[in-house]
Write a protein that binds this DNA or RNA. Structure first.
Lengths: 142, 142
DNA sequence: CACCGATCGGTTGTGCACAACTAAATTGGG
DNA sequence: CCCAATTTAGTTGTGCACAACCGATCGGTG
């Protein structure tokens, strides 16, 4: 253990550094479309699931209303989505992707290959990493 | 591949979610001492390496001056460190831990066991994760 | 010496994260 | 039916991250 510091620091710091490095890899692909990484995550949910409630977005992305409210407001201003308060339960707000928002999916395209290559890991290693992170995260599986 | 979305999203999102979950695990241990997780990282470097320059702190933590300047100012206000501009090269600023800052190390203690247990991973799995993240991060090894 | 490029730290502006709180709507128990 | 507890979004305040920019300082070269 001649690392500069202990293992505990390393794993946590690595996650912290890796997360920031990953969003830095996404940035050049998203910025031309005016999206940040968290905004891109929201749009992915909309592309995949269609109209969703803010509540479910929060559960899926593990973000609270303090983060999502202004983020969704910005995406609405850009014309990528539309808010609509539910009629039967006026507490919940539905988020609908607009045509512009839907078109973004094809405009941005599939970043899978690009980003996977950028890590320099093999397919097997990516699968391992996926499994480990899945196990680490499932402590409170929503 | 019956995941809710594609693998690319999953690994990147997992890193993003895992990083936030990790700092959430640290928070209850650090907040009583008035530290945030990034502030704790800075203090760890000071505890381990002793006096450091802002430049080296940035290289070690991969953070720029826009992040470090106000962060260090807050740690200085709390009395945990002291800034001193170098005499031979007045561009660089040295960061010295104070006695209060040094005492924090024993006050906070070793969070390794606590945090490792919280992930629910075995020692082997933690080592695997460490190795994978190390490989993923070494693309531009400072 | 005078200049030029690079380095270093700081500031400004934007956008997350998250705690703490508020207000409105809903639900369930008496 | 009525009220208390719960659910849901939204707001406020603090602290990162990071791009973009700035001024001061240093190092070398002519």
């Amino acid at each position: 253990m001649r690392e500069s510091t202990a293992l505990d620091r390393m794993i946590c710091f690595q996650l912290y550094a890796a997360s920031r490095a990953m969003t830095a890899l996404y940035r050049p692909h998203l910025e031309p479309h005016g999206l940040t990484y968290p905004q891109y995550l929201v749009m992915r949910v909309l592309w995949h699931d269609g109209p969703t409630t803010i509540r479910d977005l929060g559960r899926t992305l593990k973000l609270d209303s303090g983060t999502l409210s202004p983020l969704l407001k910005r995406l609405e201003t850009q014309g990528h989505l539309r808010r609509e308060r539910a009629t039967h339960d006026e507490r919940t707000v539905w988020i609908h992707p607009t045509d512009t928002g839907t078109r973004l999916q094809t405009d941005i395209g599939d970043l899978t290959q690009t980003l996977a290559c950028a890590t320099g890991l093999t397919t097997d290693e990516l699968t391992q990493l996926h499994t480990l992170l899945h196990r680490a995260l499932r402590k409170d599986p929503s």
